[in-house]
Nucleic acid binder design. Structure first.
Lengths: 216, 216
DNA sequence: TTCAATTTGGGGAAATTTCCGTATTGAAAC
DNA sequence: GTTTCAATACGGAAATTTCCCCAAATTGAA
C-alpha cells in the first residue's frame, strides 16, 4: 500500500510543527511539503503533485484558503483538498465546500481523526463532521445556494479587501499587501459598499465581523 | 541548571502537538502539562506550579486568555505568563500586558524564538517584539492608566463617543448629536485611541463591539 | 464567440480625518 | 487652596479618504 502524500498549507509554524509531529513514526501518510501561503503552495505544486492538500482557510497574502482551493481544483482537479479550520471559522464551510474542498477538519483534531480524514479524502469520500454534513445538506435542501453567504454577494477579491479593512488596514497598506494600486483598492471598496448598502467604514467592519469575514 | 517548566494552554490539539514537538530532544525547557481551556488549567495549577504558563488568548469557554491571565497572576503571582497569539490579535496586547502577561509571542514563531521567549520570561524579563514593545511604551508614556482594566479606562463621555464612532458616525455627526464642537470630538477620539492603544477606526469598532459598547 | 462581470487603474477635487500643538472651565480630590 | 482630571475647544498643516468621472484587460459563462 502506498503512503498518502500530502502538502500542508498554514501560515503558523507551530501548526506546521504540530502536523509534522503527528506524522512521525506512522505508515499511512507522509507530508511531502509545507507552505506558509498560497504562492508557496503553487510553487510546490509545480514541482510535483501530492494526493491531498491540507489547507488552512485563513491565510495571509493575496489568496484566501477558499480561493486557493478553487484554483488548485481548477489547475489540478485530481488533487483533493482537506480544509483545516480554527475555531471561529465554521462559516467558511459552505464556501469551502463549493470551492471544491473534500473535507473539513478542526484544528483540534486528534492524530487519529486527522489520519482518518486523510484516508477518507484519499479514497474519494468526503470528510465532514456530522454537524457540518447536516449543515451542508440543509443548505442545499433549502435551495439556499445564492443568498445566504457573503460569498455570493461579494467576490473573493472583495471579501479579501473587506477583511483587510476590517482588520484596520489603510488603502495604502492593502494595496501593498495585495500588490495592486491604491486606486484599485478604492474602486473595490466603493463597489463593496454599494453592493452591501453601507456607507462608512464602521458599518463595513461590523458587516465583516457579523459575516465572519474578520474576527472580533 | 534547571529545566524551565511550563504548562501550555491552547484549545487546538494541533497547536499543542506543535509546541510539544518543538520540545523534544532539547534541554532548556520542559512542557509539564497541557490544558485545552482555562478550567483545565486551574485544575493543573492546583496540582503543582510551573514556572510559566504559555497561553493562547483566544479560547472557548467561560474565560478568555486575558481573564485567565489575570486570575493566574492573582492566585499565583510567581507564575509567569507568556501569551501565544494568532494573526489578528494585536488588540489584546495592552490588555494582556495589564493583566500581567510577561511576554507576547506569535504562533508563527520558530523553535528558537519560542525558547528565547521562555528563557527571557523565566529570568524575569519581558518578551515582546520590538513593534509591540514600542506600542506599550508609547501607551504608558502618554499617560495610559496603569491600574485600570480595559473596560474601565474610558470615561462616560468617551464611551459615548466610542459608541458613536462604532455606529458609523463622522466627527460632524457626533458633534451635532452631542451638541459639542467637532474639535472636541476629535480630542476625545485621540484620547480614547491613546488610552486603548489602538491606531485606527476599525480597531476602535472592534474594541467597542468586544466590550459591549456597541452592538454588532 | 460574444457578453457581462470582475479586476485592474487613473485624474482631479472635495471632504474628512489625523497630527502637531495649546488652553479654559468646573468639579472633585488631596 | 492647590492640584488633578474630565470635558470642552481652537489653529494650521498634512495625510487620507471619498466622490465624480472614465476605461482597459481578463475571465467566465451563455
Amino acid at each position: 500500500m502506498q503512503k498518502i502524500r500530502f502538502i500542508l498549507v498554514d501560515d503558523h509554524r507551530v501548526v506546521r510543527a504540530g502536523i509534522r509531529s503527528m506524522m512521525v513514526g506512522q505508515q499511512m501518510a507522509e507530508m511531502i511539503g509545507e507552505a506558509y501561503n498560497a504562492d508557496k503552495l503553487f510553487t510546490l505544486l509545480e514541482k510535483g503533485l501530492p494526493d491531498i492538500v491540507v489547507m488552512d482557510i485563513r491565510m495571509p497574502g493575496s489568496l484566501s484558503g477558499i480561493e486557493a482551493t478553487r484554483r488548485v481544483k481548477k489547475q489540478y482537479p485530481k488533487v483533493k483538498i482537506l480544509i483545516l479550520s480554527g475555531d471561529t471559522t465554521q462559516d467558511y464551510l459552505i464556501p469551502a465546500f463549493q470551492a471544491g474542498a473534500t473535507g473539513f477538519l478542526n484544528k483540534d483534531c486528534s492524530r487519529d481523526t486527522f489520519l482518518e480524514a486523510l484516508q477518507k479524502v484519499y479514497y474519494g469520500q468526503n470528510y465532514f463532521s456530522d454537524e457540518d454534513s447536516s449543515r451542508i445538506f440543509q443548505y442545499f435542501q433549502q435551495g439556499g445556494n445564492e443568498h445566504d453567504t457573503y460569498a455570493s454577494v461579494l467576490t473573493e477579491r472583495e471579501v479579501e479587501i473587506t477583511r483587510a479593512f476590517a482588520e484596520g488596514n489603510s488603502y495604502k497598506e492593502i494595496a501593498d499587501k495585495l500588490s495592486i494600486s491604491p486606486r484599485t483598492v478604492e474602486t473595490h471598496k466603493k463597489n463593496i459598499m454599494q453592493k452591501l448598502g453601507l456607507d462608512n467604514l464602521a458599518d463595513l467592519v461590523r458587516y465583516a465581523i457579523k459575516h465572519n469575514i474578520a474576527d472580533l
